[in-house]
Design a binder for these strands. Structure first.
Lengths: 123, 123
DNA sequence: ATTATTGTATTAAGCGCTTAATACAATAAT
DNA sequence: ATTATTGTATTAAGCGCTTAATACAATAAT
């Protein structure tokens, strides 16, 4: 899974999002141990300080827990993870509809375009 | 129409997008005259240099034309505008579906969530 | 006991973005 | 003819982000 970082936004926010969806999609299940800051940084080809910053953010959001000397792990609270997944999905939908509305597409057109393009998505 | 600039991404890219949708949605129709750099900058509460940068970008994209001493105007090429509108819409849909896929939603769920939220959009 | 691995902190440097202050040439407006 | 308005260019400063280098305390691993 490539990290695919772009220079158009702060890297640490992109790291947050990337790790976020790894948690929300189950790559790291509740309670799982995360690689160390240094390993994650190496994996993402990023400075450890930058990764540290991303992890601090995720901790603030309650998705991960720090164990000072034995690394970090995903929260055990699977309900919180589920809620975060729904919340973020709704945000995505909301932002998307807003943009399409700005471009002048109405409900019907939006659904039409999606149906034309959705085949690439699994299931 | 508020410009609604956020500090999480470069301002000039947000200016580009904002002016872009004003063109694509017809606020500025083909051939229309744009306000001066200084006026646009004042309107967006931004430094003229920053606005200048955004306009240079839009010119590079072919959406606007500079007349050196009499300001700028929107391209007369309405076909290009139409194509840009479709292209950008498809990009938005593509990015959106990609994100939802990453969050673990399948086709059915995506359509379901959209149908639940789409009422806020006009028509 | 010793060593390696945690997270954490600090300092300095470089970079792009943004603002502010100015200035200039070309030309539209008067 | 004069004035105002275009876009454009330059310089300096401040800011956040990122990297690099380094160090430290706590503790897990050996």
């Amino acid at each position: 899974m490539p990290w695919d970082l772009k220079p158009d936004r702060p890297i640490y926010t992109q790291l947050v999002e990337h790790i976020e969806w790894m948690i929300l999609s189950g790559v790291y299940p509740p309670g799982a141990k995360l690689p160390s800051v240094r390993d994650l940084a190496r994996e993402a080809s990023v400075n450890p300080n930058t990764m540290q910053r991303a992890l601090a953010q995720l901790e603030e959001d309650g998705l991960i827990i720090t164990h000072r000397t034995s690394g970090r792990s995903i929260t055990e609270d699977s309900e919180m993870i589920q809620k975060a997944r729904i919340r973020i999905a709704r945000e995505q939908v909301s932002e998307f509809l807003e943009k399409m509305k700005k471009l002048g597409f109405d409900k019907k057109e939006i659904l039409s375009i999606i149906n034309n393009m959705i085949e690439e998505v699994g299931k």
